[in-house]
Amino acid sequence: MNARIRRRRGAACRWVTAILLGITVAVTGCATTDSPLPPEAKPLSNSTSQPSAIPGAMTAPSPSGTAAPTAAPDTCADGRPVRASVDPANPMPVPGQMPPGSAMAAIVDRGYLRVGISTDVPPFGSMNWQKLELEGFDVDIAKEIAKALFGTADGRVRFQAVTIDDRINVISRGDVDIVVAIMTITCERKQKLRFSGVYYESGLRLLVRRNAGFTRIEDLAGFHVCSTTGSTSLAKLKNLPQPAPALVAMERTANCLVAFQTGQVDAIATDDVILAGMASQDPYTEVLPAAFDHALGNELRTLEEPYGVAMRMTGNTVSDDQFVAFVNGVLRNVMQGGRWKQIYDRWLGAELGSTDSPLAKNANWPH
């Protein structure tokens, strides 16, 4: 490794407090390219001194000893696309005047909407300790649904913090009315829950240091790139053609962040929304929006993770469809009227660049 890269890494070292996925990690000290990787790291080669020799297709063992999973199928067992949902309500009911006997009427009668939300995944959901309130992309989407129910979101939303593991249980028990928490729509989950149409689609991106000279994944050949063990992101990275980066697998994204900020890896590859949260807290980093446009080909260019609003499956198909149609009507209006772009620009635009809403990208939305 040349002296220029060594100096760049040394300059990047500093005290770091990273809050990610509910884990607070304090990092001190500086590291050079010769520093050993943390114990949590699992370099995907027999030696970290020759990263360029690592075959891009080498299998990275997950904690269970199996290969990392591939992306979810586009079509479920019933023959319907995984993204398929109910047509939006048309016309939409007047706020405060929901159809009698509907799930929406029960919420209005109660006086507030109960929302399961992630509180540790900025910029989608996190606590603003200065204002003592939750904020983020998902928070704003939930408030739009409350506005459609009550005419205003003020005093009409009660958020309940949910973790990645307990989201399904919380909504299935009826503890909340909806879950808006970066929840990917999958065929398996659709057997237990009802989902809206896609309101955001994340993709595989790269986080690098500003002015490091990297613009595409090809520029990182011979450098260390970190991703999480057993993730679909890591599975995509193993398809990179040679010469490829040296892949480093860690159990948690927070561990990748520690290794990155101490100069032990050169980039992090994962969902763009997670990287945007990291970049918003560190002005010396940037997310590369088109890093994989050529390396993986069009069919593998992004790791698609379609997020949807989750609702309880009550067994009453007519009632469930009515609630999903209402939520889809809200999302349609948010995307058609420009509100979606305002929310996106506020929380993600600076780090991820401009993009269109799922409705603008898919004329057949929400199918």
Rank of each mutant, 00 (worst) to 15 (best):
N211P: 03
F159E: 04
V139T: 08
T24E: 15
L303G: 15
S231E: 05
R210M: 03
P366I: 08
K341M: 10
K190R: 09
V139P: 06
A249S: 11
E351V: 01
T355E: 14
N333H: 08
Y284F: 12
S231A: 08
I19Y: 15
W340Y: 08
Y199H: 03
V330H: 00
T70P: 04
P43N: 05
G203E: 09
A142R: 00
A12Q: 08
G277I: 04
K238F: 08
V25Q: 15
A72D: 10
R312D: 03
V318I: 12
N364G: 09
T33R: 13
C226T: 01
G308R: 03
V108T: 12
A146W: 05
L237V: 04
P241N: 04
F137L: 04
R6A: 13
M278Q: 15
A103Q: 13
K147Q: 10
K143V: 03
S35I: 02
P91T: 09
T270K: 05
S227A: 09
P55D: 09
K341E: 14
M313Q: 14
V179K: 02
N90Q: 09
A72M: 11
E286V: 09
R173I: 09
A221Y: 05
G337I: 02
D140H: 00
V16Y: 09
P36Y: 02
L207F: 01
T163D: 13
N298S: 15
G155K: 13
F260C: 00
S102E: 04
E135P: 11
T285G: 03
A142I: 02
R8V: 04
G174H: 04
K192V: 07
P95V: 05
Y200M: 15
R339N: 08
L20Y: 15
A3R: 13
E251L: 15
W129M: 14
G353K: 05
F150P: 00
R332M: 14
P61K: 02
A142C: 06
I5N: 10
A295C: 04
I19E: 15
L20P: 09
F137A: 04
L207R: 01
S102D: 00
V287P: 00
F214Q: 08
A142F: 02
S35P: 01
V27H: 12
A84Q: 14
A18T: 10
T59H: 09
F124S: 10
S45W: 10
V157T: 06
D356F: 11
T48A: 07
A276V: 01
A267H: 01
G277E: 06
L288C: 06
Q130N: 12
A249N: 07
G315Y: 01
S49V: 12
L247A: 11
V139K: 00
L206E: 06
L359Q: 06
R312K: 08
S357W: 03
N2S: 13
I268G: 03
